[in-house]
Design a protein around this nucleic acid. Structure first.
Lengths: 250, 250
DNA sequence: CGGGGAGTTGAATGCAGTCAACAAATGTGG
DNA sequence: CCACATTTGTTGACTGCATTCAACTCCCCG
């Protein structure tokens, strides 16, 4: 595994471009000092590396600083169910109990993580109610997104599902960028889309091309542009404004 | 709406049969006093009553004391997606932020709720780190269950889905009872099962009867018995022990 | 006794999976 | 830099699970 630790000259949290969309967005500068002390290192992984495995008992929690990550369960038949894609700002591998993780995580691109050793982190929680509340708030967001995904997957056909997933990722990724009108890089394969939505790659391909032919999405060599988000939201059977509230922190 | 408030002579939390499987299971007797002060009333609803609606901003959180509740989203086309069934001990309607609820809740049976006004509850959180941690721990459980449901719904056919749902409910309900070998009362219709799993009632019916004919489940007038949980777990494509850990709170 | 909700069954349709083959893009080593 | 292997994407034909539509039964409750 090609992972690398950085323990010195760590970048400052105050100036971090993704802070506002991370766990620490709600924590003011005063308390941020205390939180930053909990961060011991940054860790980098290459695309394709496992960050952790289902069944592991985590020793560190992470804030994803750069890149995309796929969280998934392995099925009995060898298949995968992707639970969600993590983007910069996402909080990974945290468990309040000392139980095993129920899913694995793999880097989709080269990534950087900010690492927080869990033992110290948990003992600090009692002194930092702000942090507890921030974690609750992130958990709530995760639950809401999961229920929203569940609804899309359970009740709709492939076109709706794919439209929903692409629009969600597009909204999240553009919210992290300055120039919100240029295409985003989509570091996932059609197989990943299938594994996230419970569809075969073949059916994903047909439906994906269908969306392209209708002009609802534009995509070549993994660069995705959505010319009219309102149109795609209609196909995805969601209200665009609600989806933005769900996907964009702050 | 036939709801009724009880504000005097509230039953003691210490002796509550469901405490150990509720939010407060992890809170010791000393701190329990402080928590109990936050509970202002018990509220009863009749089967079929709404407890809250999607879009409401909650003023109270609840511990479900008695009965079953269905949590669901309403779809554009008028359909419903049931997100989960709540059983005694479940914590409902809590939001750390002041945002609107993303789903509605309806009583499946006559129910009793313990009510906690949210304003007081939230201000107390800073003084009671145990409570924050308990809430995080409940959130984590909810996320894990949701991901598990998502996996079943996305990747498997109707027989697997129904087997999974019935086994989950059976395990949860029997864990709350003394006599774990007698049938449980299942206060949900085949339509509810369909709305939870994204299937039509007709297909639920056919598949349900299939499970009966195979002897995997026994069910008449809403009394469900599972003669061999290991067999049904195999059909549901889950490991029985893992499912028990996921469904039973200590 | 009549009405409504829930459950049951059959036949026809359609969305998505499976199998098979191939094309394009990407990566690797000689 | 090219040859080859691997991964990813594309297309067609066939199969099957789940939906739709329609009709009907059972049972509880007023």
């Amino acid at each position: 595994m090609a992972r690398k630790f950085i323990t010195q000259d760590l970048p400052k949290c105050e100036n971090c471009a993704i802070r506002k969309s991370s766990l620490f967005g709600e924590i003011d500068t005063f308390h941020l000092d205390k939180v930053r002390e909990l961060r011991t290192s940054q860790i980098t992984f290459n695309a394709g590396d496992y960050i952790y495995h289902e069944g592991d008992i985590p020793t560190r929690a992470y804030t994803l600083h750069q890149g995309w990550v796929s969280l998934f369960k392995t099925l009995e038949d060898g298949g995968r169910q992707i639970l969600r894609f993590a983007l910069p700002g996402d909080f990974l591998s945290y468990k309040s109990s000392n139980r095993a993780l129920d899913h694995s995580a793999i880097a989709l691109t080269d990534i950087t993580l900010c690492a927080f050793p869990l033992d110290r982190f948990k003992t600090k929680l009692a002194d930092l109610p702000e942090l507890s509340i921030a974690i609750s708030s992130v958990s709530e967001m995760t639950i809401q997104r999961c229920y929203s995904t569940l609804t899309t997957i359970a009740s709709h056909n492939a076109e709706v599902k794919i439209a929903y997933l692409l629009l969600s990722l597009y909204i999240r990724e553009t919210s992290l960028k300055q120039n919100q009108s240029e295409p985003i890089h989509l570091p996932i394969t059609q197989e990943d889309i299938g594994d996230a939505l419970g569809l075969t790659t073949i059916h994903v391909n047909r439906t994906f091309k269908g969306l392209q032919n209708k002009g609802l999405i534009e995509c070549n060599n993994r660069n995705l542009h959505i010319p009219d988000q309102t149109n795609l939201a209609e196909v995805a059977k969601v209200n665009l404004e609600s989806l933005k509230k769900l996907m964009v922190v702050v």
